[in-house]
């Protein structure tokens, strides 16, 4: 078996793998993602009605959704939603909260500093790195273009 050609073998293996049910997965992602965004809209409208302006309302909505996502992760429901919904519950900001709470909970037994606090951003950290990083670069480019 040592003479196995890894390229041919990978091709052969790929022919053996059942294809994911794209259609079903996409429908689930669409519906769950859509529902989470609709809830977001309801929350936004609520904050706008109580007098927050557009930007503050958006921030308050984000905070509320993060709280909901964190809570659902804590009580063990978010991973069950995610199993069906896939990207439908990963892509909304509630999924960002899930990605923070789940490792933080998981590593609690390793202590509150090297466990909870250190692992909290193991998945969400890269999001902040690339998000912050790219926005700063965009800002700098904008500065030189408009100067």
């Amino acid at each position: 078996m040592n003479n196995i050609n890894s390229k041919d073998y990978r091709k052969y293996v790929n022919s053996k793998i059942p294809k994911p049910s794209y259609f079903k997965n996409c429908i689930w992602a669409f519906i769950v993602g859509g529902i989470i965004c609709t809830i977001g809209q309801i929350i936004t409208n609520f904050y706008n009605n109580v007098g927050l302006d557009k930007e503050d309302g958006a921030a308050a909505t984000a905070i509320t959704l993060i709280f909901i996502g964190a809570l659902l992760t804590g009580i063990g429901i978010y991973d069950k939603i995610g199993k069906r919904a896939g990207a439908g519950s990963i892509v909304p900001i509630t999924g960002f909260a899930n990605s923070i709470v789940s490792p933080a909970m998981e590593f609690k037994r390793e202590g509150y500093i090297f466990g909870v606090a250190a692992k909290m951003f193991s998945i969400a950290g890269p999001v902040l790195v690339y998000g912050f990083g790219s926005s700063i670069i965009i800002g700098i480019i904008y500065y030189f273009i408009t100067k």
Binding site: G76, Y78, D79, I81, S99, P103, F107
Partner: peptide
């Protein structure tokens, strides 16, 4: 991944 992460296997 952590157990409570909402990923698909």
């Amino acid at each position: 991944f952590p157990l409570e992460l909402g990923n698909q296997r």
